[in-house]
Amino acid sequence: MRAAAKWILRNTITSRHHLTPEMSLALITEQCPLWMATPDQCPLPDPYWAFYWPGGQALTRFILDNGSQFRDKSVLDFGCGCGASTIAAVTAGARTVFCNDIDNYALLATALNCRRNNVLMSTIEFSNENLLLSEGKITPIPDAILLGDMFYDTDFAGDIFRLLRRLQLDKPEMDIFVGDPDRHPLNEEVHRKRIGVQFERELLIDYPLPGYVTREHYGFSSAKVYRLLFV
């Protein structure tokens, strides 16, 4: 892990070029040689944590702008990646933040980013458990779940929806916040039908993405934050 931490610090740059410039994050950006690399040239496999995905940017912006909704709450950041939403939830005064990602390097990157932003980690509980496999045994069920850009694959989205539905059935007042730039599983009728899990989504806000984010992600020009309700 020490070697991995060193690798992260050596191969990323600190960036404030995103929707939450009050946060500086270690990222692989256009300025890094790895930006033009292929995944197999990267010793840490599929470094999702090295990018600040459009959906995560919008969700994190929303948390920072609506901090009171997270104060004293227990919050689960599902698929934390670089950890921006976790940092925002801690900053907003959440009681506990369960920071979850199946990739240990994402947890490491999140810890490094906490330190860089002087965010205390005493309220964060890190876990690499795959919650999709734990059959809903998430205890205690948090007050809010954060999902930044997690709906990029139809089958995977289906698994997450089924987990969310189960959790909300057990705890109806649980809030589900989603940040998403209009990826197919959440937005296209054919994919939603294939998944077959009914839910309603309430649009909370739509953030225009900065030009360079649009360019990096080939065409997404805005990212939205939704509250999901499974009925």
Binding site: Y152, F156, H184, Y218
Partner: peptide, 15 residues
């Protein structure tokens, strides 16, 4: 354009 690392990663998940 050349495909960049994040876009190659994302492409693996596209339908």
């Amino acid at each position: 354009r050349y495909a960049t690392l994040p876009n190659i990663m994302k492409a693996k998940k596209k339908p």
